[in-house]
Amino acid sequence: MMAHCSTSSSLNPSNLFSHPTFRTKTLSIPRLCSLSSIRIPQSHCATNRSSLRRLPVVAGAVAVDSQASYTDEKEGKKLLLEVKDLTAVITESQQKILNGVNLTVYEGEVHAIMGKNGSGKSTFSKVLVGHPDYEVTGGTAIFKGQDLLEMDPEERSLSGIFMSFQSPVAIPGVSNADFLNMAYNARQRKLGLPELGPIEFFSHVYSKLDQVNMKMDFLNRNVNEGFSGGERKRNEILQLAVLGADLAILDEIDSGLDVDALQDVARAVNGLLTPNNSVLMITHYQRLLDFIKPAYIHIMENGRIVKTGDISLASFLEKEGYKGITAA
């Protein structure tokens, strides 16, 4: 009897990069490098239905106008994020996903976005942090007075936006400790503060582990590799705890968590809340909102925010489902 398992692949440039199997592996370089160049000019004809604030009239005036907005205050709170008429498509297929999102977040506020599967919640959060899968086709996003859409993803992060991924990727070969250390040092550099070597960093991060109830050995494991769903979520919150953020966007931080883990995570998030930083959480369930209480709840549908209300909206939703909302 003879079993013969053999694979042979001879690859040269043309067949590797045109072969359908490798389509998803095409080089990312061109796309990532030209992030700023693919951004089409913002549309100036946006009709501003939901916000009373004045829209910039010419693109060149954006920075100036928005700088003014940042000092704009509501009950003594500064404006943190202002998204207007944001539209976006999937880069590869040009399919429209976001159809004009409007959202305003002030310092110290907790917001929640709810909405049916596929309504565009994750897409919205990924667009805010500059994910290359999406291309912004119109609208504006101003964060702390700066045009977010003009910034590279790493600049957005360094300027204080943190998004915890709905499905964080694993990075084999890179330890959690090294990854966090790199991210931490990038932040320190940006702030003009001293970077930490591996040993100093270890003691810095050690204290944060308790906050999310994670064991030490998580630091030595590779980023998310072999992590359970719940462990990945905790790991996202650990990163948030280590790096800090003015605006934390938490995409379904509660899904896949058991009751104890949910409490750990909620406690950690609450512990990070100060009068100055804000949280935008995406969730399907009331139970998270019982732990982290949002002042505003937005309902997203078909790539737009169609309704905004207070916490009572969530309980209404729990009882009536989305039908009730759309009809209302």
Partner: peptide, 18 residues
């Protein structure tokens, strides 16, 4: 046979790493 994974690269960037 692969190139670097785009999603992995983005994960770094999303945490402020160039």
């Amino acid at each position: 046979i692969s190139d670097l994974e785009e999603d992995q690269l983005f994960y770094f960037q999303a945490r402020g790493i160039d």
